[in-house]
Design a protein around this nucleic acid. Sequence first.
DNA 1: GGATTTGTTTCCACC
DNA 2: AAACAAATCC
Length: 758
Amino acid sequence: MLLEDLNPEQRLACESVEGPNLIIAGAGSGKTRTLTYRIAYLIQQGVNPHNILALTFTNKAANEMRERIVDLVGDNAKYIFMGTFHSIFSKILRIEAERLGYLNSFTIYDTENSKSVIRAIVKDFNLDDKLYNKSYLLNRISAAKSSLISPQAYMDNEQLMMEDRANSRPYIAKIYQEYNHRLRRNMAMDFDDLLFNMNVLLRDHNDLLLKYQERFKYILVDEYQDTNFAQYYIVKKLSARYRNICVVGDDAQSIYAFRGADIRNILDFQKDYPDAKLFKLEQNYRSTSNIVNAANSVISRNSKKIEKKVWTNNGEGRKINFCKSDSDKDEAKWICNTIRDRIREEDADYKDFAILYRTNQQSRVLEENFRFLNIPYRIFSGISFYGRKEIKDILAYFSLVVNNSDDEAFLRVINYPARSIGDTSINKLKILANEENVSLFHTALNHIDKIQLTPRTKQSIIDFVTMIQAFTIEKDKIDAYELGVKIIAKSNIVTTLKNEADPAVEDKLDNIDELISAIQAFVESEDEMILDEQTGEEIALRNKTLDIFVQQTSLLSETDRGDKNDDNTVSLMTIHSAKGLEFSYVFVAGMEENLFPSAMCIGSQVEMEEERRLFYVAMTRAKKELALSCAQMRFRNGSIAYNEESRFLADIDKDYFNENYNNLKEKTKLKTPSFSNSDFVSVNRNLKKIDTLPKPIGGTPVTDMNAFEEGMEVYHDKFGKGKILALEGKGDDTKAEVNFVGFGIKKLVLRFAKLKLM
DNA sequence: GGATTTGTTTCCACC
DNA sequence: AAACAAATCC
């Protein structure tokens, strides 16, 4: 029997096939397994795979799940519609593009493209680009789109307009409007448009709403805690007819509020569907009990959550390993050494290890060490494969061929490789394009005679657009591989690269080869099956054309990238990209205040709770051993940062740590005999204690950080009287070790400590 | 028009 | 520190 491998709760969650269902799945509770079996069970019960829509968090997860379901219930299962929100709805938008006034060859803009469009608008509007910062604007626009607020709705929204005025940025609505206008002119959609336009499609076209409601009779959503309003609304609309909606998630792992994810979607599911059945998967099969309990103690500090108790039958396992090093370099060394030790002493391989960090820039120093020590590694985040310049250049050629209206692509490649078409000529083209209200490509092709250009430049432009046009004519006739290889050859990018005195040329050529292999794999991949609405016949979508390749790749994340399966490498990635993954040994590096939790969240309770959930996610990736590390000194953004250890360390009871941590704390404790509380940070949390402190007494405030000397008696607002034991650093970075009466030795950054001389 | 130098920005996570 | 944009020179 299919479901006999599941535990009782998992099994109940699978068997409840009809109606609204909410599955709260704790970390490591076999969520993917349950989802997989649930879908397999649906099919076994006679549900047509065509009628199943499964929305997952990564494309890779979708593909793995699909394969597993095929294994369980047979080949028919490959027809289920499964993938990320963005990839599924981009496919539907492609099919229905004309309803929205788009061609189906529309381009999907990534963040870089979007920012570039915004920068151009700010320039054209003659606005201050410091005030109208492109990242800020894109965030603002993205937030609006994720909440289904159109430019018009934005202008009509008093709240938003008031916020912008209060921020001295009254023109954001106008920029948003112009941004959308330009995207449309470029026949492009940004990431948020894929969701926004899907909503428009379902809102304005009743026949399509009905068509997809009928099509997707059973809807499953994974990682529901990370859905935003636009996603929530699509799901709500699509499931409104049959109400077979099953959402799976864990509120404790909600980590995407920054991009509009709304935790209320999962918290309020039962309000939306009062008849919803609730299932809780609480048994953790992944981690040791020490890790599970430590993670529980962290998440228990958060206030807003659905009650659940994650537990495990697994053995206690090893205590949490810890290292506080002097610098980021030493931290990296410690991690590498520990990995080597484990591999030598235990039955472990490089692929069993992951190093997780809060910010991408932390990967650099780690990478240096891995290189130096010859430990094979792979960085999953940071500059992704498709973000590399040489790859983006080629993809821009592809985009322009597929969609001649794509001005961003045009501008990127018009003079790369150099064709003697400089800024002056391009600006003339831009002005004319604006007057004619057509794309740059179109202007160059049809209106070139209207501008004054040197014959040489003019010929260059004509040659360029003629070349692109020739490719465009072929785009539906030959497959992506054939056309792609042709474009790469004719564009001369490879030859140009070879002539550059760039030490990284070999890498770049390798990357281009990898891109070509990816196109080949795409062309050779199995055809996607669709159902003919009229006849009910299954049809293979055989067009492996370049436009589909381009659309598909723009939605790939680095974690989706096919690892060369037998890759035995240590994984380096941000905690965000580690979501859903697991490793035997997990290192969380950079456990420091202002880094993790990020400086931007300190001061906001809500954001701090999200950081804490992020830490929870990091901890629960580990199966066998969890190691946390921090550095006293770290290079960041061109300067040295000194940070205290992360407050999250103190969220974990010290019993869960090994001696590395407790010895360190023991030392501190010995130096501070008068502070008897064993919880070494309770000072920070225990407000009562602070309230009972003597009221501040007099003293001289000090502004010059060099005025302090060892042995001086000082006064601190919270810790009271103390004596300076040691000073280190100078100027604004000066730190002091001060022995406070009743609080013991504290290390303080003088700039913030507001010490007074007694 | 193109190369080189100088100045400026970004410093949180991502589809 | 490094990536990016602008300014300057040839």
